[in-house]
């Protein structure tokens, strides 16, 4: 009786724990199934064109390169923006802030993390994009940079919170030894604590990047969605996520366009998968020390 119940509970626990594995596998299988036949009709090489023209009276072109460069440009810019704010913010919150300051700062960081991306996107469209336009003297405020700033807003709480944990888990002895040797507080922070917490900070940044790559709504609203290959932050770009979100709703089921959208999904999944893998590696290294 007892062993039977133990077994049942064990099965339930194992089942719940492995649901994520099952879901990930199912997602891969499902994406693959929908996208598979694109490989021979019209051919896998069709995905490597430099143009994305899914609706045309002449010939549809499903080149995902402009979408990839769009995603990479926005992600790179957002990463550059979120590192200083996220990491320096974490250093302040973990090392320098007084208790009362921390009690004000922490809830606001958490609120920022919880703002829905549509709301951030709307803010970007109405408030941020005119500012960007006037600041840089552009003709339009719908640029890769605008999207990157919004994404940085969204990723900063993640980077800040995880970096703060990393900094706080540096052993007290490091700090005390450094101070005892005559280093002042800033020297201790930047020469001892930050280097010791660096792997954790890198993992935090990677989690932030993962958030940025997968974000849809905000970029759909502010990057202008012109599918062209560019490295200029003041150009408008179309990201992979925005393309899927904008076009999946009306695409004919099973068409080449539909399959091409699934291929975008697969590449996106592979990109975030690799990022997570790298973050895991770095984190593990950090925990072994």
């Amino acid at each position: 009786m007892n062993s039977w119940r133990d077994k049942l509970i064990y099965i339930i626990l194992v089942g719940s724990a492995s649901t994520s594995i099952l879901i990930v596998v199912l997602i891969f299988v499902f994406l693959g199934k929908e996208a598979f036949s694109f490989i021979w009709d019209p051919g896998f090489s069709e995905l490597w064109h430099t143009k994305w023209i899914p609706v045309s009276f002449k010939k549809e072109i499903f080149g995902i390169l402009p979408l990839m460069t769009g995603t990479l440009l926005v992600t790179a810019l957002a990463t550059l923006l979120m590192i200083p704010f996220g990491v320096l913010g974490a250093i302040y919150v973990a090392e320098l802030a007084s208790d009362s300051e921390r009690q004000i700062l922490k809830p606001f960081i958490e609120i920022l993390a919880g703002v829905p991306s549509v709301v951030i996107g709307f803010f970007g469209l109405v408030v941020l994009s005119p500012i960007i336009k006037h600041l840089f003297g552009l003709n339009t405020g719908l640029t890769a940079l605008t999207g990157a700033i919004l994404l940085a807003f969204m990723a900063i709480p993640t980077v800040l919170t995880v970096s703060e944990d990393a900094i706080q888990s540096v052993p007290r002895a490091f700090r005390e030894a450094s101070l005892a040797l005559g280093a002042n507080q800033l020297q201790t922070i930047f020469r001892i604590i930050v280097p010791a917490a660096l792997p954790g900070i890198i993992a935090a940044i990677m989690l932030g990047v993962g958030r940025v790559i997968g974000e849809t709504m905000a970029v759909l609203m502010v990057t202008g969605n012109a599918a062209k290959i560019t490295l200029n932050p003041f150009d408008s770009v179309r990201t992979m996520t925005a393309t899927i979100a904008a076009e999946m709703g009306e695409v004919a089921f099973g068409s080449h366009h539909y399959q091409a959208l699934f291929w975008i999904g697969i590449f996106l999944l592979i990109m975030t998968f690799l990022l997570n893998l790298m973050a895991q590696r770095v984190l593990r290294k950090y925990q072994m020390r």
Binding site: K58, L142, G224, R238
Partner: peptide, 17 residues
């Protein structure tokens, strides 16, 4: 006349945008 849109065209998600 059924030609393709320029790559520079910005595709907006809605009429209000």
């Amino acid at each position: 006349k059924k030609k393709d849109y320029t790559q520079d065209a910005m595709l907006m998600p809605s009429t209000s945008a």
